[in-house]
């Protein structure tokens, strides 16, 4: 992955920084320039809460090379307290015991690295509470 591409997303990936529309209150994650609900262009910067609920999930058994060392691993869509949904890996869990509706917390993890000599890409993953 190109380093500038990684670098410019750091605020989203490290801190779950999101935008709250000043006009209608809708929360966008990641940040956007235009509110998809009301087309307003002014946002307050907020950090999303690091707790949520598992909406749906799967276990990736055939992964791309970048993730093959981690397979099999679970992925899921998690709705955070603010109602914003994120897609992330579900880590530190028994992959056979996941259920929709489980409570999740967000942790800071390595997502993948660009080989043993490249940059390490960090970000968020969810862990069952």
């Amino acid at each position: 992955m190109a380093i500038p591409e990684y670098w410019r997303e750091i605020k989203h990936r490290y801190k779950l920084e999101a935008g709250k529309c000043k006009s209608c209150g809708y929360i966008v994650f990641p940040m956007r320039l235009i509110c998809p609900k009301c087309q307003n262009q002014d946002f307050d910067s907020i950090n999303l809460s690091r707790e949520g609920t598992l909406i749906t999930y799967s276990v990736i058994r055939v992964a791309s090379s970048r993730f093959v060392n981690q397979a099999p691993f679970a992925v899921g869509i998690v709705e955070l307290k603010e109602g914003v949904r994120i897609l992330s890996q579900i880590t530190d869990c028994n992959i056979n015991e996941l259920k929709s509706g489980m409570k999740m917390q967000v942790e800071f993890r390595r997502i993948f690295d660009d080989g043993s000599s490249g940059v390490i890409n960090y970000g968020y993953k969810c862990v069952p509470m």
């Binding site: 992955m1 997303e9 799967s58 970048r66 992925v75 890409n121």
Partner: peptide, 20 residues
Amino acid sequence: AYEVYQGVTFPGLYAMIARM
């Protein structure tokens, strides 16, 4: 940036639709 980065594949995305 927000799906593939996390490790999900296309079968994974449709699997989540199926699960739901």
